[in-house]
């Protein structure tokens, strides 16, 4: 069933070998789940890094609120931002589409080597749609945790974890940096998300989460007219994948089955 042994140490927790089992009996372990999440709320905070954009790389901060319908399914509301929340920068007078100054508002961004190669070696310009970066994302997703497991680290620590998949959608605002170094607002898109990850429970109320989440959207960005090229609209299906590491706080749900004892 949902048993995932990540036994880092190759020996069992208690080392003496068990006697060979008789064909006339089976031994089972039936125990109350130590880290039950059923009916719990989970508030998480993540720091993330985009890893698969060809031309850009940028950082994100994410807050999420999960409600665990049961041990396997959860609904997740997520807000991700890649720059100082709700700050756009100083608008350039008369710009249309709107352009903003303010490089320092993003959590960090840079162009990749691929961008330099295209730009400098091939003397080509990637389309603005390729350069669009997410500003803010707000979405809802469904999380499915089919695997719950435990692991031991050198027979000293016993840990529990669950592995999950998530899928959902939401809306995101994006922007790109034009030749003048201003940030151009490219509007709001519908975004589909798909991800996977795992949470390592350190306490009934606390977990560490590692999440890989892909944001897919159709970037439709206007290319400015130049001497050789007329103004046109570039449309690209963009996948921006973030690796996010965070912490979770869980509350509510079923109280652990512990008979009150005075000792």
């Amino acid at each position: 069933m949902k048993k995932l042994y990540i036994s880092i140490a190759s020996i069992a927790l208690l080392s003496a070998p068990a006697a060979a089992q008789s064909p006339n009996e089976r031994v089972h372990v039936l125990q109350k789940r130590d880290y039950s999440v059923k009916n719990k709320f989970e508030v998480s905070a993540f720091g993330g890094l985009s890893i698969d954009d060809i031309f850009t790389q940028h950082y994100s901060a994410t807050l999420s609120l999960d409600y665990h319908l049961d041990e396997a399914f959860a609904l997740e509301l997520m807000w991700m931002t890649c720059k100082v929340p709700f700050a756009l920068g100083d608008k350039v007078e008369g710009s249309d589409p709107a352009e903003y100054k303010g490089d320092n508002l993003r959590f960090g961004n840079h162009y990749t080597d691929a961008y330099d190669e295209v730009k400098n070696d091939a003397k080509l310009s990637p389309s603005n749609a390729d350069l669009a970066m997410i500003n803010n994302f707000l979405g809802l997703s469904v999380q499915f945790s089919p695997i719950y497991g435990k692991w031991t680290l050198f027979n000293r620590t016993l840990g529990h974890a669950d592995f999950y998949l998530s899928a959902g959608g939401g809306v995101a605002s994006t922007e790109f940096k034009n030749a003048r170094g201003n940030w151009v607002d490219t509007g709001v898109y519908f975004v589909g998300t798909f991800g996977l990850g795992f949470r390592i429970f350190l306490a009934r109320w606390f977990a560490i989460r590692l999440d890989v989440r892909d944001f897919t959207f159709a970037a439709r960005v206007e290319r400015e007219a130049s001497a050789s090229v007329e103004a046109q609209v570039d449309t690209k299906i963009r996948n921006t994948m973030f690796v996010m590491l965070g912490v979770s706080f869980l509350f509510g749900g079923e109280a652990p089955v512990e008979i009150w004892s005075p000792y």
Partner: peptide
């Protein structure tokens, strides 16, 4: 679903102690 079932495979995990059950052949 708030319970876990693990088959015992000759390996003792400390957290499983106290939660064993046998099924035996009715012979």
């Amino acid at each position: 679903e708030t319970w876990n079932y693990w088959p015992f495979r000759q390996e003792y995990w400390e957290d499983e102690l106290g939660f064993f059950q046998y099924t035996v052949r009715r012979a």
